[in-house]
């Protein structure tokens, strides 16, 4: 079962190693991992898609990732809570008679051609993982030479970013201690 985690981490050497280790030591394959600086200076946002055989372990992973010193906040991302997107770059070599179809596919999938050479074309598109799976499937008929997927990235649907609260959102009002 695939779980998507979004973590806010300190932009420093080693933090990614610690995150990956928590999955690696339990022999869980990370399907995709996307890291880049975010709106807060000194912090990065990481989106991890992990393929875990144990369906109910996602909360545990949220907590153990939070235990890492340089991890500020972790959320579990779903299609309900987050907008989840992926970017695809594909270098294709369609037969000349099919080049027109590529342009139609670009239009239909809201993609675009970044390079239109004699022997190949570079196609770019973004969308949900499911949309990108379908797109890649469609591109196969145009002879894919090279395929690059960014891995998923996710942004919270909440209008105020809960990740900005230092200890996470949703804690009760009648808190006794901190």
């Amino acid at each position: 079962m695939k779980h998507t985690y979004v973590a806010l981490v300190r932009d420093t050497a080693g933090v990614l190693n610690q995150i990956v280790n928590q999955f690696r030591r339990r022999n869980i394959n990370i399907e995709s991992l996307a890291v880049a600086p975010c709106e807060r200076p000194g912090l990065s946002r990481v989106t991890i898609v992990a393929n875990d055989v144990e369906p109910a372990r996602q909360d545990f992973f949220v907590q153990i990732l939070k235990n890492i010193v340089y991890v500020v906040e972790v959320q579990l991302a779903s299609n309900n809570s987050h907008i989840v997107r992926e970017n695809v770059l594909a270098k294709i070599n369609p037969p000349p008679q099919k080049r027109k179809e590529v342009k139609q596919l670009a239009h239909k999938s809201q993609g675009r051609l970044l390079q239109n050479g004699n022997s190949s074309m570079v196609f770019e598109a973004a969308g949900t993982a499911e949309e990108m799976d379908k797109l890649v499937n469609d591109l196969e008929s145009f002879n894919i030479i090279e395929l690059v997927r960014s891995g998923r990235v996710a942004i919270s649907k909440q209008e105020k970013d809960p990740a900005l609260s230092p200890n996470g959102a949703g804690e009760s009002q009648d808190e006794l201690s901190r």
Partner: peptide, 16 residues
């Protein structure tokens, strides 16, 4: 600033 890491917990009246 390790505030996110050094947490003493969040106990609520409801839990007690």
């Amino acid at each position: 600033d390790l505030s996110a890491h050094v947490v003493n917990g969040a106990v609520t009246k409801e839990q007690i």
